[in-house]
Amino acid sequence: MNFENKHCDEDLKQKIRFRKTYVKTVPVFKNKSVKAILALCLSFCLLVIGAIGCAKRETIHIGVQNDNELKIMAEMASLLLQEQGYPSQIIEIDDGLQTLHSAVLGGNIDMYPGFTGEGWSDILNQKETYRKTRLSELKKQYEKMNMQWVGVLPAYSLYTLAVRKETADKYNLKDLSDLAKVSKNLTLGSSLTDLERQDSIHLLEEIYDMDFKTTKVMESDQFIEALKNQSVDVIPIRSNDGRIKNSDFVTLIDDRMALPESSPGYVLNDQLLEDDPQLESALERISSVISANDLSEMNRRTKQEKEDPRAVAREFLQSKGMLP
Protein backbone atom coordinates (compact mmCIF):
# COMPACT_ATOMS: atom_id res chain seq x y z
CA MET A 1 0.00 0.00 0.00
CA ASN A 2 1.39 3.40 -0.99
CA PHE A 3 1.15 6.03 1.74
CA GLU A 4 3.24 8.64 -0.06
CA ASN A 5 0.20 10.86 -0.66
CA LYS A 6 1.28 14.47 -1.06
CA HIS A 7 -2.00 15.64 0.46
CA CYS A 8 -1.19 14.03 3.82
CA ASP A 9 0.64 16.25 6.27
CA GLU A 10 4.22 15.36 7.18
CA ASP A 11 3.34 14.40 10.77
CA LEU A 12 0.85 11.85 9.52
CA LYS A 13 3.38 10.48 7.04
CA GLN A 14 5.82 9.93 9.90
CA LYS A 15 3.12 8.20 11.93
CA ILE A 16 2.29 5.90 9.05
CA ARG A 17 5.95 5.10 8.44
CA PHE A 18 6.29 4.32 12.13
CA ARG A 19 3.36 1.96 12.01
CA LYS A 20 4.74 0.27 8.91
CA THR A 21 8.05 -0.22 10.71
CA TYR A 22 6.27 -1.44 13.79
CA VAL A 23 4.41 -4.06 11.79
CA LYS A 24 7.71 -5.47 10.61
CA THR A 25 9.00 -5.90 14.19
CA VAL A 26 5.96 -7.70 15.58
CA PRO A 27 7.10 -10.93 17.32
CA VAL A 28 6.60 -14.10 15.31
CA PHE A 29 3.53 -16.06 16.35
CA LYS A 30 3.43 -19.73 15.61
CA ASN A 31 -0.35 -19.82 15.54
CA LYS A 32 -1.36 -19.02 11.96
CA SER A 33 -4.85 -17.91 13.00
CA VAL A 34 -3.43 -15.36 15.43
CA LYS A 35 -1.05 -14.06 12.77
CA ALA A 36 -3.87 -13.72 10.26
CA ILE A 37 -6.07 -11.83 12.72
CA LEU A 38 -3.23 -9.48 13.67
CA ALA A 39 -2.42 -8.81 10.02
CA LEU A 40 -6.04 -7.99 9.25
CA CYS A 41 -6.31 -5.68 12.27
CA LEU A 42 -3.13 -3.82 11.40
CA SER A 43 -4.15 -3.46 7.75
CA PHE A 44 -7.53 -2.11 8.82
CA CYS A 45 -5.88 0.41 11.16
CA LEU A 46 -3.62 1.67 8.39
CA LEU A 47 -6.57 2.08 6.05
CA VAL A 48 -8.50 4.04 8.67
CA ILE A 49 -5.50 6.28 9.34
CA GLY A 50 -5.15 6.95 5.62
CA ALA A 51 -8.85 7.69 5.20
CA ILE A 52 -9.03 10.02 8.18
CA GLY A 53 -5.70 11.74 7.86
CA CYS A 54 -5.41 12.23 4.10
CA ALA A 55 -7.77 14.97 3.10
CA LYS A 56 -9.21 14.99 -0.40
CA ARG A 57 -7.56 17.15 -3.00
CA GLU A 58 -7.71 20.89 -2.42
CA THR A 59 -10.05 23.02 -4.54
CA ILE A 60 -10.45 21.75 -8.11
CA HIS A 61 -10.20 24.66 -10.54
CA ILE A 62 -12.49 24.32 -13.56
CA GLY A 63 -11.72 26.66 -16.45
CA VAL A 64 -14.40 27.57 -18.97
CA GLN A 65 -14.66 29.65 -22.14
CA ASN A 66 -17.32 32.29 -22.71
CA ASP A 67 -19.76 29.77 -24.18
CA ASN A 68 -23.19 28.98 -22.75
CA GLU A 69 -23.15 25.23 -23.31
CA LEU A 70 -19.66 24.90 -21.88
CA LYS A 71 -20.65 27.02 -18.88
CA ILE A 72 -23.53 24.61 -18.23
CA MET A 73 -21.11 21.66 -18.50
CA ALA A 74 -18.75 23.38 -16.06
CA GLU A 75 -21.56 24.02 -13.58
CA MET A 76 -22.72 20.40 -13.74
CA ALA A 77 -19.19 19.18 -13.06
CA SER A 78 -18.77 21.63 -10.19
CA LEU A 79 -22.08 20.69 -8.56
CA LEU A 80 -21.50 16.95 -8.86
CA LEU A 81 -17.93 17.15 -7.57
CA GLN A 82 -18.98 19.29 -4.62
CA GLU A 83 -21.75 16.81 -3.80
CA GLN A 84 -19.06 14.12 -3.61
CA GLY A 85 -16.87 16.19 -1.31
CA TYR A 86 -14.56 17.96 -3.75
CA PRO A 87 -14.47 21.76 -3.35
CA SER A 88 -14.44 23.37 -6.80
CA GLN A 89 -14.11 26.80 -8.33
CA ILE A 90 -15.11 27.86 -11.86
CA ILE A 91 -12.76 30.28 -13.58
CA GLU A 92 -13.95 32.00 -16.77
CA ILE A 93 -11.34 32.54 -19.48
CA ASP A 94 -12.23 35.12 -22.13
CA ASP A 95 -9.13 34.64 -24.31
CA GLY A 96 -10.29 31.40 -25.92
CA LEU A 97 -9.37 27.74 -26.03
CA GLN A 98 -5.62 28.17 -26.54
CA THR A 99 -5.25 30.21 -23.34
CA LEU A 100 -7.45 27.79 -21.41
CA HIS A 101 -5.50 24.79 -22.68
CA SER A 102 -2.19 26.43 -21.77
CA ALA A 103 -3.50 27.07 -18.26
CA VAL A 104 -4.14 23.34 -17.80
CA LEU A 105 -0.74 22.47 -19.28
CA GLY A 106 0.87 24.84 -16.80
CA GLY A 107 -1.05 23.43 -13.85
CA ASN A 108 -2.90 26.68 -13.15
CA ILE A 109 -6.26 25.04 -13.91
CA ASP A 110 -7.13 21.38 -13.35
CA MET A 111 -9.77 20.77 -16.01
CA TYR A 112 -12.13 22.36 -18.51
CA PRO A 113 -15.18 21.40 -20.59
CA GLY A 114 -14.62 21.55 -24.34
CA PHE A 115 -15.66 20.24 -27.75
CA THR A 116 -13.71 17.41 -29.34
CA GLY A 117 -13.90 18.99 -32.79
CA GLU A 118 -12.31 22.21 -31.57
CA GLY A 119 -9.63 20.28 -29.71
CA TRP A 120 -8.85 18.41 -32.93
CA SER A 121 -8.53 21.53 -35.09
CA ASP A 122 -7.45 24.28 -32.67
CA ILE A 123 -5.17 22.39 -30.28
CA LEU A 124 -3.85 19.53 -32.44
CA ASN A 125 -3.92 21.65 -35.63
CA GLN A 126 -5.27 18.75 -37.66
CA LYS A 127 -6.35 19.58 -41.20
CA GLU A 128 -8.76 16.67 -41.67
CA THR A 129 -12.39 17.30 -40.72
CA TYR A 130 -13.15 15.85 -37.29
CA ARG A 131 -15.49 12.86 -37.15
CA LYS A 132 -16.50 10.74 -34.18
CA THR A 133 -14.31 7.94 -35.55
CA ARG A 134 -11.29 10.10 -34.70
CA LEU A 135 -12.04 10.20 -30.95
CA SER A 136 -9.53 7.45 -30.16
CA GLU A 137 -6.76 9.31 -32.00
CA LEU A 138 -7.75 12.57 -30.30
CA LYS A 139 -7.42 10.93 -26.88
CA LYS A 140 -4.02 9.45 -27.74
CA GLN A 141 -2.68 12.84 -28.80
CA TYR A 142 -3.93 14.47 -25.59
CA GLU A 143 -2.36 11.70 -23.51
CA LYS A 144 1.00 12.75 -24.95
CA MET A 145 0.37 16.15 -23.32
CA ASN A 146 -0.50 14.45 -20.00
CA MET A 147 -4.21 15.16 -20.43
CA GLN A 148 -7.31 12.99 -20.62
CA TRP A 149 -10.69 13.38 -22.32
CA VAL A 150 -13.44 11.97 -20.06
CA GLY A 151 -17.23 12.14 -19.99
CA VAL A 152 -17.49 12.62 -23.76
CA LEU A 153 -21.05 12.80 -25.12
CA PRO A 154 -22.12 11.24 -28.45
CA ALA A 155 -20.96 13.30 -31.45
CA TYR A 156 -23.20 15.53 -33.52
CA SER A 157 -22.74 18.22 -36.17
CA LEU A 158 -21.98 21.25 -34.08
CA TYR A 159 -22.49 24.06 -36.58
CA THR A 160 -24.65 24.86 -39.58
CA LEU A 161 -26.04 27.96 -41.29
CA ALA A 162 -29.49 29.43 -40.67
CA VAL A 163 -31.74 31.75 -42.66
CA ARG A 164 -35.16 33.30 -42.11
CA LYS A 165 -38.11 31.18 -43.22
CA GLU A 166 -39.09 33.79 -45.82
CA THR A 167 -35.60 33.53 -47.35
CA ALA A 168 -35.78 29.74 -47.40
CA ASP A 169 -39.21 29.90 -49.07
CA LYS A 170 -38.13 32.54 -51.60
CA TYR A 171 -35.11 30.56 -52.82
CA ASN A 172 -36.39 27.06 -51.97
CA LEU A 173 -33.48 26.44 -49.60
CA LYS A 174 -33.14 23.07 -47.91
CA ASP A 175 -29.41 22.46 -47.77
CA LEU A 176 -26.10 24.29 -48.12
CA SER A 177 -25.81 23.38 -51.80
CA ASP A 178 -29.06 25.28 -52.39
CA LEU A 179 -27.68 28.23 -50.44
CA ALA A 180 -24.44 28.30 -52.44
CA LYS A 181 -26.38 28.88 -55.67
CA VAL A 182 -27.92 32.11 -54.36
CA SER A 183 -25.21 33.21 -51.89
CA LYS A 184 -24.23 36.17 -54.12
CA ASN A 185 -27.63 37.71 -53.29
CA LEU A 186 -27.30 37.34 -49.52
CA THR A 187 -25.45 39.00 -46.63
CA LEU A 188 -23.62 36.80 -44.15
CA GLY A 189 -23.31 37.70 -40.48
CA SER A 190 -20.24 36.20 -38.83
CA SER A 191 -17.84 36.66 -35.95
CA LEU A 192 -14.17 37.31 -36.58
CA THR A 193 -13.43 33.95 -34.93
CA ASP A 194 -15.66 32.07 -37.39
CA LEU A 195 -14.04 33.85 -40.31
CA GLU A 196 -10.55 32.94 -39.10
CA ARG A 197 -11.28 29.29 -38.31
CA GLN A 198 -10.30 26.83 -41.04
CA ASP A 199 -13.21 24.49 -40.24
CA SER A 200 -16.01 27.05 -40.30
CA ILE A 201 -17.02 29.71 -42.88
CA HIS A 202 -13.78 29.34 -44.81
CA LEU A 203 -14.37 25.60 -45.21
CA LEU A 204 -17.97 26.10 -46.38
CA GLU A 205 -16.96 28.72 -48.94
CA GLU A 206 -14.31 26.37 -50.28
CA ILE A 207 -16.34 23.15 -50.46
CA TYR A 208 -19.65 24.68 -51.53
CA ASP A 209 -18.14 27.51 -53.58
CA MET A 210 -20.15 30.11 -51.66
CA ASP A 211 -19.63 33.78 -52.47
CA PHE A 212 -21.76 36.05 -50.30
CA LYS A 213 -22.70 39.55 -51.44
CA THR A 214 -21.13 40.97 -48.28
CA THR A 215 -20.13 39.89 -44.80
CA LYS A 216 -20.92 41.81 -41.62
CA VAL A 217 -18.62 41.09 -38.69
CA MET A 218 -20.28 41.00 -35.25
CA GLU A 219 -20.17 39.20 -31.93
CA SER A 220 -21.77 35.75 -31.93
CA ASP A 221 -24.37 36.78 -29.34
CA GLN A 222 -25.69 39.32 -31.89
CA PHE A 223 -26.39 36.74 -34.62
CA ILE A 224 -29.98 35.93 -33.72
CA GLU A 225 -31.09 39.55 -33.41
CA ALA A 226 -29.28 40.54 -36.62
CA LEU A 227 -31.05 37.78 -38.57
CA LYS A 228 -34.37 38.65 -36.97
CA ASN A 229 -34.18 42.36 -37.85
CA GLN A 230 -32.97 41.55 -41.39
CA SER A 231 -29.61 43.29 -41.14
CA VAL A 232 -28.13 39.97 -42.36
CA ASP A 233 -29.61 37.04 -44.28
CA VAL A 234 -27.44 34.13 -43.15
CA ILE A 235 -25.75 33.30 -39.84
CA PRO A 236 -23.64 30.42 -38.51
CA ILE A 237 -25.38 28.75 -35.59
CA ARG A 238 -25.07 25.76 -33.31
CA SER A 239 -27.17 22.99 -34.79
CA ASN A 240 -28.67 22.32 -31.36
CA ASP A 241 -29.18 25.96 -30.37
CA GLY A 242 -32.43 25.90 -28.42
CA ARG A 243 -33.37 29.40 -29.60
CA ILE A 244 -34.13 28.00 -33.06
CA LYS A 245 -37.11 26.12 -31.67
CA ASN A 246 -40.41 27.86 -32.33
CA SER A 247 -38.57 30.59 -34.25
CA ASP A 248 -38.94 31.87 -37.79
CA PHE A 249 -35.53 30.45 -38.74
CA VAL A 250 -34.57 27.48 -40.89
CA THR A 251 -31.31 25.57 -40.41
CA LEU A 252 -29.81 24.17 -43.61
CA ILE A 253 -28.53 20.62 -44.03
CA ASP A 254 -24.80 20.15 -44.54
CA ASP A 255 -25.42 17.80 -47.48
CA ARG A 256 -21.72 17.37 -48.32
CA MET A 257 -20.78 16.76 -44.68
CA ALA A 258 -18.21 19.53 -44.83
CA LEU A 259 -18.53 20.72 -41.25
CA PRO A 260 -16.95 18.72 -38.42
CA GLU A 261 -18.84 16.64 -35.92
CA SER A 262 -18.10 17.36 -32.30
CA SER A 263 -18.83 16.19 -28.77
CA PRO A 264 -18.85 18.05 -25.47
CA GLY A 265 -16.63 16.48 -22.84
CA TYR A 266 -14.07 17.26 -20.15
CA VAL A 267 -10.30 17.66 -20.46
CA LEU A 268 -8.42 16.85 -17.25
CA ASN A 269 -4.81 17.18 -16.23
CA ASP A 270 -3.34 13.69 -15.66
CA GLN A 271 -2.23 14.68 -12.17
CA LEU A 272 -5.84 15.30 -11.16
CA LEU A 273 -6.81 11.73 -12.04
CA GLU A 274 -3.68 10.31 -10.44
CA ASP A 275 -4.55 12.07 -7.18
CA ASP A 276 -8.24 11.16 -7.33
CA PRO A 277 -8.98 8.32 -9.81
CA GLN A 278 -12.68 8.28 -8.85
CA LEU A 279 -13.14 11.71 -10.44
CA GLU A 280 -13.35 10.06 -13.85
CA SER A 281 -16.36 7.94 -12.91
CA ALA A 282 -18.05 11.01 -11.41
CA LEU A 283 -17.73 12.93 -14.69
CA GLU A 284 -18.70 9.89 -16.75
CA ARG A 285 -22.00 9.88 -14.86
CA ILE A 286 -22.86 13.22 -16.49
CA SER A 287 -22.29 11.92 -20.02
CA SER A 288 -24.39 8.85 -19.23
CA VAL A 289 -27.54 10.88 -18.54
CA ILE A 290 -27.31 13.97 -20.76
CA SER A 291 -28.10 14.21 -24.48
CA ALA A 292 -27.53 16.89 -27.12
CA ASN A 293 -31.23 17.76 -26.84
CA ASP A 294 -30.93 18.19 -23.06
CA LEU A 295 -27.98 20.52 -23.55
CA SER A 296 -29.89 22.38 -26.25
CA GLU A 297 -32.85 22.99 -23.94
CA MET A 298 -30.63 24.15 -21.08
CA ASN A 299 -28.80 26.43 -23.50
CA ARG A 300 -32.14 27.91 -24.63
CA ARG A 301 -33.22 28.59 -21.06
CA THR A 302 -29.99 30.37 -20.17
CA LYS A 303 -29.85 32.42 -23.37
CA GLN A 304 -33.50 33.10 -24.13
CA GLU A 305 -35.08 32.98 -20.68
CA LYS A 306 -31.95 34.45 -19.02
CA GLU A 307 -31.95 31.75 -16.33
CA ASP A 308 -28.84 31.22 -14.22
CA PRO A 309 -26.64 28.42 -15.71
CA ARG A 310 -25.89 26.95 -12.27
CA ALA A 311 -29.57 26.82 -11.33
CA VAL A 312 -30.43 25.17 -14.65
CA ALA A 313 -27.60 22.65 -14.26
CA ARG A 314 -28.67 21.87 -10.69
CA GLU A 315 -32.28 21.30 -11.73
CA PHE A 316 -31.19 18.91 -14.48
CA LEU A 317 -28.95 16.85 -12.18
CA GLN A 318 -31.72 16.71 -9.59
CA SER A 319 -34.16 15.45 -12.23
CA LYS A 320 -31.74 12.58 -12.91
CA GLY A 321 -31.41 11.73 -9.22
CA MET A 322 -27.76 12.82 -9.10
CA LEU A 323 -28.30 15.62 -6.57
CA PRO A 324 -30.66 15.85 -3.59
Rank of each mutant, 00 (worst) to 15 (best):
L138A: 10
S262L: 07
C45M: 13
S78L: 03
P260M: 02
V104C: 07
A313W: 00
V34Q: 03
S88E: 02
F44H: 09
D254K: 11
D276I: 12
T21Q: 14
L138F: 13
S190L: 04
K6C: 01
S231H: 04
I253R: 14
A168V: 08
I60Y: 08
S262Q: 01
V34I: 14
A226M: 11
E92A: 09
K303S: 08
G189Y: 04
G265V: 07
L227T: 02
Q222N: 06
E10W: 07
L179D: 04
L12T: 10
A162C: 04
Y112F: 15
D209H: 13
F223D: 01
T116Y: 01
E10R: 06
S102G: 10
E137M: 04
V182K: 02
K30Y: 10
S88H: 05
I109N: 02
N146F: 10
Q318N: 01
V234K: 00
R301G: 03
V289D: 00
K30V: 10
M1F: 13
E166D: 15
M210W: 01
N172D: 15
T133R: 09
T193F: 09
A51Q: 13
L46A: 10
I62D: 02
K24M: 10
L100G: 01
S102D: 11
S136K: 13
V163T: 06
D294R: 07
L38F: 08
H61Q: 11
M145N: 07
G242P: 02
R256P: 06
T59H: 00
Y159V: 00
G189R: 01
R19S: 13
L12C: 09
D169P: 07
D221Q: 11
L188Q: 05
D178W: 06
T302E: 02
K140V: 05
L38Y: 04
K15Y: 14
D122A: 11
Q126H: 10
L70F: 03
V250P: 06
R310S: 12
L268G: 03
V23T: 11
G107C: 07
Y112R: 04
Y112E: 08
N5Q: 14
N68R: 05
Q84R: 15
N146P: 02
V104N: 00
Q148T: 09
K127T: 14
L279Y: 02
Y142K: 00
S291L: 05
E297I: 11
K303H: 02
P236N: 08
K184R: 15
L40E: 10
K320I: 03
I72K: 05
P260I: 06
E261F: 11
R256M: 14
M1L: 13
E315G: 01
D9M: 13
E284N: 15
R285A: 12
H61A: 12
K24G: 06
